[in-house]
Design a protein around this nucleic acid. Structure first.
Lengths: 227, 227, 227, 227
DNA sequence: CATGAATGAGATTTCATTCAT
DNA sequence: AATGAATGAAATCTCATTCAT
């Protein structure tokens, strides 16, 4: 469906400061244009117009459209990870980290709604870059969670699976209450999310059911009563 | 970026059985082609070739590429919802429903990997149809969760937010362990997911909750009792 | 540019009354549709939809799109000629005929603005039919003018050239003050036109200049004075 | 039926001489092709083939077919007006102007028969441009006629109506004796036209006017005297 | 470095006409 | 007589990319 990525292709590095400025202008413009029109509907001409350079200049710095897109996505991911890292730096326990991390994420999405769409579209443009985006994110997440587990703040479970659960949860809440809704009630959603993240949704005491794995047990007496 | 959808446009209904067959052939072909090449890289010619009809025939039944895409997505959503509904029909408590629902979803994604990508791409083709997909899904989810809450199986919290948490979690796990990985370890992931869904990730007893956040705290007494 | 006409092709004549009705419905619909959309933008499907018959039915009665157009134009011409003939029937002298003829023409244009455009477009669809339209018109005009000359009401001059002068004059006035303008001031325009038609635009007495042909005389003394 | 014109859309202006040459080549080719095939039957490919550039080059300079057509028509109108203005520059009285203007017009039509058809077709392509063509023509005509009236060469009457009478008359004569006929007898037609233009067609002396119409009569005494 | 003209493959869409029923 | 499904040629328009200056 899409070219199998360009990760090993070395990027053109401008020799002069002028060139560096031009390259940067193109990257900024690309972010704007991809954000507004989406990858497929954005043309190189749109980007160079936005960057106020000539069409041909584009190919001085990027071999093709996909390359600049990938670079934009990578940059975006790095920025978001940095932002979240800063936002949770002062947190004192893991749960606070989760809450502040989510909040920072929502804020980022809210003030970069277009940019966020860019990432999601990467799935259809350059799958490798898309995976890289989540892999890196997950990696950081996992290391934090493992620390939390070691500190006894987080119950022990597969940290990567947990990381994807948390990312998915954040992603969908952001989609629903930031992208779609005008951010109203975001705090309430954050509260609900944190409640769920902390304690799950089971109403019954944790000790009552350690069951896991294939051996799903058929309902026991008490439960059937409650219905 | 994309047309604001076509929901009110009445679809062309063939007058004869022959026409109905042709229309259906086109829908099936479209599913195949969109799944294989993605929306943007699929051409009408690809679809008609796959359907073994002439190019012009497409336009007898669909006004444009977007329309058939939307119809494919809607159909796909309906199919998935039906499948999941059937899969959880026999479940006797809500946690079982979650587990079986997740499993059915993973199965669907696994055996329709291409088709599932179609849905994700809808975000960039017809936003309305994309939202409709999740809205409908969420609606069903919410009504099940509310019943679970009334039955005392699910802790009371905003059901829509919870639904989106669960959908996001499932979506990301499916992406990571079904689409990307060859399904290996799926059961293990399911277990982890169910553990998280049930009890959350907090290692400390609920009562010990110091409520990090911006100091917003929920009524604690009733909850700590129920655990 | 266009097929060299179809005048010798005999038209399909329906055997049954039902068939005749259908054919007529198609002609009426064609007039409407050609009037609204112009020849090129009108499709056979538009016509059959307007006529409330199936697409295929069209080809039962007309061999192709051009044929029905030609028939519409011919009919239109006949109708207009009939209308004008009736309108001037009661006139007692040639000048009155001119005035009433013009008035009837303007009226027709005003209440059939679209249809009038049809005729003008014939030039680009079937030149022969276009010429026929004006030829026939001119023929009637000429015979009237010749009678007027014999009756001493009209000065003797080439009647065909005169007829085209009068037709062109009417055509352009109709275009300008009927098609373009909301008919306001039409009577005034009629007055001006009649003044011109009667006496021409020369301010000098007729006797002072019988000049014709190549021998354009250079200005004589009196005129140069007047400047 | 047709877009309401494009007058306010700024035309693409080539930055380099090379580009200017290419744009000009396209305009010239368009004139040829539109003249030969008519607007509807001329394709962009025809134009670029004629201009010996690639298909895509067309869209570097013109947004669509209609735009280049409008530009061709505008240019054609300007050329014709210029030509006529030059042709009558040496004339010393208004009647001479009329004759020489008509002659120049016929000449133009004769040597640009195809091009002239272009103008007539504008009515169906871009009505605004079509009106503009005649409006501008009429404006020049009116100012000449008013001068003629002030100079006492032309009888006083509504100059705009008179202008449209004269344009229509010329148009139809040109159509009939230039476009249709191989120009034979043109001088004779010119004579007839001038006779009519000067003195009208009424055989009776102006004073004998019985004013047929709906009984509207003009003051008669002053006119017969002053003219 | 930067420019912008030129390219042409490829995609969508229209529609007159045919044909089997 | 009437129907409407099917056809496919043809036209418009887009745009990533190349290249000469």
């Amino acid at each position: 469906m899409n070219r199998s990525s360009t990760s090993s292709i070395e990027r053109m590095v401008p020799a002069t400061p002028r060139g560096q400025r031009t390259r940067q202008k193109l990257l900024v413009a690309a972010q704007t244009v991809f954000g507004e029109k989406g990858y497929e509907h954005a043309s190189i001409a749109d980007i160079t117009r936005e960057a106020e350079v000539a069409l041909g200049t584009f190919y001085v710095y990027f071999p093709d459209k996909q390359s600049i897109f990938v670079e934009v996505v990578d940059e975006l991911g790095a920025r978001l990870r940095r932002l979240i890292a800063e936002s949770v730096a002062a947190c004192e326990d893991r749960m606070q980290v989760e809450r502040e991390g989510l909040r920072a994420f929502f804020q980022f999405v809210g003030s970069n709604r277009n940019l966020y769409r860019i990432v999601r579209q990467a799935e259809f443009v350059d799958e490798e870059c898309y995976r890289r985006y989540y892999d890196r994110f997950a990696k950081g997440y996992v290391s934090g969670l493992v620390k939390g587990m070691e500190a006894g703040e987080v119950r022990r479970m597969d940290p990567e699976a947990l990381a994807y659960c948390l990312m998915g949860l954040g992603d969908f809440l952001g989609m629903r209450w930031v992208l779609w809704e005008g951010e109203g009630g975001l705090e309430h959603v954050l509260d609900t999310a944190m409640d769920f993240i902390r304690h799950g949704m089971d109403a019954r005491p944790a000790g009552a059911d350690t069951e896991s794995g294939k051996g799903r047990r058929k309902p026991r007496v008490p439960r059937s009563r409650s219905r």
